[in-house]
Amino acid sequence: MLLGKKRKLGRRVEDIKIGENLKLTEKIEDKDLLLYLGLTNDSNPLYIQHDFASQTTFEKPVVPNIMLTGILTSAISKYIPGPGSYITSQQLNFLKPVYHYATVDFTLEVVEVDIVHNRVVVRVEGIDEQGVIVVQGQITANPPQTIE
């Protein structure tokens, strides 16, 4: 239980249809970056040091790709299929760096539903403020199953 309240399970595989989609917008803030870096102990200066990043082809600090992955996997856990889902694979391509304070529009769309194997495949994409695709790929998840 989360903070003492009972959570409702996400949808079962039988209740999910191909073509379902979700759009969400995330703004990458300093607090998010600092939480990630503190949690993972990832001290890559490319993520936080302007003087370091200015010496690279990126020119300024970039958002760790695993943070973008976290936004996408969190959307799977929260919405499609929802609470109780278990991610079994992900194939993501990071096509362009995302910089601090960026706003990214994410789209998730169900492209495959396999009732026999209790599996859904969700196509994912993230587009920055300039309309450029920064991440795309797919995530496979098992929707929640209840004990009979």
Rank of each mutant, 00 (worst) to 15 (best):
G4W: 02
K6S: 12
K6T: 15
R7L: 13
G10Q: 07
R11E: 06
R11H: 05
R12F: 06
E14Q: 12
E14C: 03
E14S: 05
K17V: 07
G19R: 04
N21W: 14
N21E: 15
L22R: 14
K23H: 03
L24P: 00
E26F: 04
E26N: 10
K27S: 10
I28R: 04
K31M: 01
D32C: 05
D32M: 15
L33T: 07
Y36M: 02
L37Q: 03
L37P: 03
G38A: 15
L39P: 11
N41I: 12
D42L: 02
D42G: 05
D42H: 09
S43V: 10
S43R: 09
N44S: 09
P45E: 09
L46D: 10
Y47D: 03
H50R: 15
A53K: 05
A53H: 03
S54G: 11
S54P: 05
Q55E: 11
Q55L: 13
F58W: 07
E59P: 01
K60M: 11
V62G: 06
V62S: 07
P64H: 05
N65Y: 00
N65L: 10
I66W: 06
L68R: 02
T69D: 06
T69V: 04
G70L: 01
G70V: 00
L72S: 01
L72M: 10
T73P: 05
T73K: 00
S74D: 09
S74E: 06
S74M: 11
S77L: 08
K78T: 13
P81N: 02
G82D: 08
G82K: 01
P83T: 13
G84A: 08
Y86G: 07
Y86I: 15
T88N: 02
L92P: 01
K96D: 00
K96T: 07
P97I: 00
V98F: 00
Y101K: 13
Y101M: 08
T103G: 06
T103M: 03
V104H: 04
V104D: 01
V104I: 15
F106R: 06
T107L: 11
E109L: 01
V110T: 04
V111G: 00
E112F: 04
V113G: 00
I115N: 10
V116H: 14
H117V: 03
H117L: 13
V120H: 02
V121T: 14
V122W: 00
G126Y: 03
Q130F: 12
Q130P: 13
Q130A: 14
G131F: 10
V132F: 12
I133N: 10
I133M: 05
I133Y: 04
Q136Y: 09
G137D: 01
I139G: 01
P144H: 12
Q145Y: 14
T146Y: 08
I147N: 13
